[in-house]
């Protein structure tokens, strides 16, 4: 046995062949940039005020600037509103549709195929599609509503409605993720458990409440974390659909960051914002590791 272990133990040239290429790319293009961006976030690096790009250490000033600016707070608030509404509806509708899908005797494969289509479409393209369909004057949605005797809605120019346009778009594209994952979870629950509880006289609701939901808990948390982290960084939709408007009504945090970075060339503040988003994500990422280690 010891002999076999000696054979299997890695030799250094193997590590060089297999691990080094990948690690050197990750090191140079992700890890070093991350450390560098932490450094920039503590510096003044701003083409608006500097003629040369030389990082100037200024401590936590960028962070202070972010936390004393009501606009960034507002931006965080809008993002949280969007994330929580979308996440809740994605989970609720995803679960409902997955339960329905698991109950139909025929055609589940067909429905599953239809459901996965939105997932494969580029988010930016999905936003452009919704933009055309929701156009105030000649969009198909308003024309359908008028044909049915309702009044058209100013989907894209009303600051009170715009968040719901984002939610509608996100639900279209990402509810399928929740449906498919929940459906996989429902299918992994062994059939005999249901049969036994039915024999014991449990009602459908009781089965759902005491058997299905507890067994889905793990999958539920996985969806919350993966989707929550992604939703928090929603960018493509904003860029294509509104550019943060009307007014500041869809200025999500990623868009605020983008403005500081690409429009104002204030790399210090933009990096600080990216590190704030990163630090906020870390607890969720660490929690996610739990599911990975458990397998």
């Amino acid at each position: 046995m010891t002999l076999l272990l000696n054979v299997v133990r890695a030799r250094s040239e193997d590590i060089i062949i297999f691990i080094t290429p990948m690690m050197s790319i990750l090191l140079t293009l992700i890890i070093i940039p991350l450390v560098y961006s932490l450094w920039i976030s503590l510096c003044e690096l701003n083409l608006g005020t500097q003629s040369y790009l030389t990082p100037n250490f200024i401590g936590l000033s960028n962070y202070i600037k972010i936390f004393t600016d009501t606009k960034t707070w507002n931006s965080f608030a809008i993002t949280l509103e969007f994330v929580s509404i979308s996440l809740l509806l994605e989970l609720g509708l995803g679960l409902l549709l997955a339960l329905a899908l698991s109950r139909i005797p025929r055609g589940a494969t067909f429905y599953k195929t239809v459901f996965l289509l939105p997932l494969t479409i580029a988010p930016a393209l999905a936003a452009a599609l919704f933009k055309s369909m929701l156009n105030n004057d000649f969009g198909v949605v308003n024309r359908l509503m008028e044909a049915l005797g309702f009044q058209g809605v100013n989907w894209l120019s009303d600051p009170n409605i715009i968040i719901f346009v984002f939610v509608l778009l996100d639900l279209w594209q990402n509810t399928p993720f929740a449906i498919l994952v929940f459906y996989a979870g429902l299918n992994s629950i062994p059939r005999p458990i249901y049969d036994a509880s039915e024999l014991d006289g449990a009602s459908s609701f009781q089965i759902l409440r005491h058997i299905t939901f507890p067994l889905l808990k793990r999958i539920f948390l996985i969806v919350v974390i993966v989707r929550g982290l992604t939703l928090f960084q929603t960018f493509d939709y904003v860029h294509v659909l509104t550019g943060g408007g009307p007014g500041y009504s869809s200025q999500f945090i990623s868009w605020t960051l983008y403005i500081y970075w690409i429009r104002l060339f204030n790399f210090g503040v933009a990096s600080a914002l990216s590190w704030i988003i990163l630090l906020l994500s870390i607890p969720f990422i660490l929690y996610f590791f739990k599911f990975i280690i458990e397998g």
């Binding site: 890890i31 961006s37 920039i40 928090f232 960084q233 990216s274 994500s281 590791f289």
Partner: peptide, 21 residues
């Protein structure tokens, strides 16, 4: 775990320094 964490980290955090580079 380090490899996986890089996929979950917000893209912006390494994109800004990459842009400068």
């Amino acid at each position: 775990l380090l490899v996986l964490s890089q996929r979950l980290l917000p893209t912006f955090a390494f994109l800004i320094p990459l842009w400068l580079l």
